[in-house]
Design a protein around this nucleic acid. Structure first.
Lengths: 252, 252
DNA sequence: CTGCCGCCTCCCGCAGCGTGAGGGTCAAGC
DNA sequence: GCTTGACCCTCACGCTGCGGGAGGCGGCAG
């Protein structure tokens, strides 16, 4: 039984172009040609095409299909296992995306625009790596940078979560202080500023008073850092800047 | 604050080439150039890049991101919903693939080669469309073809499943009859052949006796049809052919 | 003989960059 | 002032898996 491209295409639910393509790349060569150059497929070609389509449906790339079909020594089971892992991985990624989208939709239905902070949270764009890069760009190869790099590399996921929580706790208390109307150069503000410095020292690198004031200036100078604090509470960047400076002066 | 491509690339965790690409397609144009032609990015560019990366992580194509970011009237929520559906669909497909792979692996561990029938089952390669095509190739534009086409287009998924089950039930009973040793031209075989004809008439198109015998001949002549019946039970194609002919003769 | 359908071979196009090639630029160190 | 090395620039082709069209034969019915 011999078939033309068009017949094969209709029977196998693929386009003629696809069959041309498979011919071009050598995946499925028709078993013959007519004198006029027409492709002639026979039943074995159809069987092979069936297998090709089968593996394609399983998500295999064409070159691997060729390998599986042409190399009798290749282990299809191994391919299947690998493909299974690959697909599972892809599913996992897509599910994360979906979760992230749901988060975004939720935020929107509440009428809240996604804040930069949320974006950071979701994807960790403000993650240690980027933070390190930030630091590197600004300060170059300082000792502090090396320290934080070194510690960051040793932190486990739990460490990161704990760190996040500690920071958020501090943020809440600082915001509460601002709400209370306390002055930025008052004792409570200075205490929280000092605590902020200790947190940095504890978690990242030795942060002497001068470095702390340098950070404080960056918090108001760099819009991205500013945005970060502003999303915790409006006015926080400036307030914190003042508090850090006041704290540094009183301890000098 | 101005940054070079390299700095931006490191900070945003993308490659320089990616930034070049975004520049090329107009998605993220650096706010300026140095006299030497170096790209200069400022903080707003970084913000935009952050958003771009965010939407990319959500799986949006670049042109849609451009739309979302540049068209202030576009509704991000609608985009999110659409994207959500899209991703869910992709997950569904991947999960089907995984299930199919698991099926394939299972079959292999049992030492059973995947039969053509299994391939049909999983992917419906022997589906109504292909069947219709088959019919078309053989009979051209007949009334029967038009009828089956017309019915097929109206069938719901449940209809298809029901049809599948009905066919399988018939197949099991026919195979059992063969196992019992009954002759192909005996009354039980003829009854099941007639039932087969009624099933076709009921589900697809009017199938008079002559057409039925034509089908029967095709079942043994065309290896693919033969293979379909042989996977149900070895010898079934020939046996069914005989039964259909016997039935046609007795009713003529 | 004329249509018309189907077949043929190029060949461009798609997304989202990767990966050079071939060549300027900038800051540092000698 | 000159070299070095790290960056930067602009092409421009490559990858996947075909889609789609141009321009031109082949085959068969009327």
């Amino acid at each position: 039984m011999a078939y033309t491209v068009g017949q094969v295409a209709r029977a196998a639910r693929v386009t003629v172009r696809t069959l041309h393509h498979y011919d071009e790349i050598g995946l499925l060569r028709p078993s013959g040609r007519t004198p006029a150059g027409y492709r002639r497929y026979d039943d074995r070609d159809l069987d092979r095409l069936q297998l090709i389509r089968y593996y394609r449906e399983l998500g295999f790339p064409l070159d691997e299909i060729a390998e599986i079909l042409d190399d009798p020594t290749s282990d299809p089971a191994a391919h299947l296992r690998r493909q299974h892992e690959l697909l599972s991985g892809r599913i996992g990624k897509l599910q994360e995306m979906v979760a992230a989208i749901e988060h975004a939709m939720e935020a929107r239905t509440l009428g809240i625009q996604l804040t930069p902070e949320e974006r950071f949270e979701v994807f960790g764009d403000f993650d240690p790596d980027e933070h390190a890069d930030e630091v590197e760009r600004r300060w170059g190869e300082t000792e502090a940078y090396r320290q934080s790099q070194e510690r960051a590399s040793r932190y486990s996921k739990e460490d990161w979560l704990r760190n996040k929580e500690v920071n958020e706790d501090w943020g809440r208390r600082f915001a509460a202080l601002m709400d209370s109307g306390a002055p930025a150069d008052g004792p409570e503000a200075m205490a929280l500023a000092e605590e902020h410095r200790q947190l940095i020292t504890e978690w990242w690198y030795d942060c002497p008073l001068e470095m702390h004031t340098g950070l404080a200036d960056m918090y108001v100078a760099d819009p991205r850092f500013t945005a970060y604090f502003e999303t915790i509470r409006p006015g926080m960047a400036a307030y914190l800047n003042e508090a850090i400076h006041a704290n540094a002066i009183s301890r000098a």
